[in-house]
Design a protein around this nucleic acid. Structure first.
Length: 267
DNA sequence: AGATTCGGCGT
DNA sequence: ACGCCGAATCT
């Protein structure tokens, strides 16, 4: 007997995502149901955290109800978020979860994502001035929050991290190279001003007092022609592998859609 | 091996 | 009461 096993389009998710509900037919929990989602590529998801990890920041699942598959506003958004990155998430083998453990703003985004400053006064008006992005107060040592973040691809495999040149060294309370890398990457995107590092000698002795918050927490550095030439090679190689990846992806998509067509499916 | 299915822990 | 995920079972 063929059970009704229909995968229905889920409008609350990006196009191509399907939802399925399976009724339990025996055991103590007979009559209850399980809900699954399928990505456009066919990967199965059986919980909201799993879905959330996969979609990352591309979709806000805050008010997404996994069981119904609909956005449910009014459903108060539980603050499941710990203020500190505590023992629980810092514990062995537990990778930080970009989506739930940290506010989106703290990622090294290519977009400016300023902190919103809310001041209570009836006569205040909302400013839409984009320029204010650069005027926002910045927390001293905010880079510490980048600690432990890892780049990973959609399959959650951790990608090989970049290595910084020897000449770059951290200043301040967090001495890890990982954080330094992220801090510098952020600095490059946050402002069009040159990234110089901390130029004050005093910053090294007493960072809390002398840090220039507009600059990443690294010692001042010098760029040589040799550095530039090396970087040019890296960029060339990166472009080449991107080109290859795009070509491979194009082929894969073409294959998949023709297969779907032959098997009478819809895309 | 991969998919399916139900149990049961934690909240 | 239910979300989530481990693991037994099925194909």
């Amino acid at each position: 007997m063929i059970m009704e096993r229909k995968r229905i389009d889920c409008p609350a998710l990006p196009t191509g995502w399907k939802k399925e509900e399976v009724i339990r037919k025996s055991g103590l929990s007979a009559g209850k149901s399980d809900v699954y989602y399928y990505s456009p590529s066919g990967k199965k998801f059986r919980s909201k955290p799993q879905l959330s990890r996969y979609l990352g920041n591309t979709v806000d699942l805050g008010s997404f109800d996994f069981r119904t598959g609909k956005i449910m506003p009014g459903k108060l958004q539980k603050n499941k978020q710990r203020l500190r990155q505590d023992h629980l998430s810092l514990a062995k083998g537990c990778k930080p979860d970009l989506n739930t453990a940290l506010p989106i703003r703290q990622t090294a985004s290519i977009f400016k994502q300023p902190v919103t400053k809310v001041v209570h006064h009836p006569s205040n008006k909302v400013k839409t001035d984009l320029q204010r992005a650069t005027e926002q107060p910045r927390q001293l040592f905010w880079e510490r929050r980048l600690k432990g973040l890892r780049t990973s691809d959609v399959t959650e495999e951790v990608l090989r991290s970049m290595e910084l040149p020897k000449g770059l060294q951290t200043v301040g309370p967090d001495a890890s190279d990982d954080t330094l890398l992220l801090a510098i990457a952020s600095a490059l995107h946050m402002s069009s001003a040159p990234v110089t590092g901390q130029t004050s000698q005093a910053a090294e002795k007493n960072p809390a007092v002398w840090i220039n918050a507009a600059q990443p927490l690294c010692k001042a550095f010098t760029i040589t022609d040799q550095h530039i030439r090396e970087q040019e090679v890296k960029v060339y190689q990166a472009r080449k592998s991107l080109e290859e990846a795009l070509a491979a992806d194009g082929l894969a998509r073409a294959r998949e859609s023709s297969r779907d067509f032959l098997e009478g499916r819809t895309g």
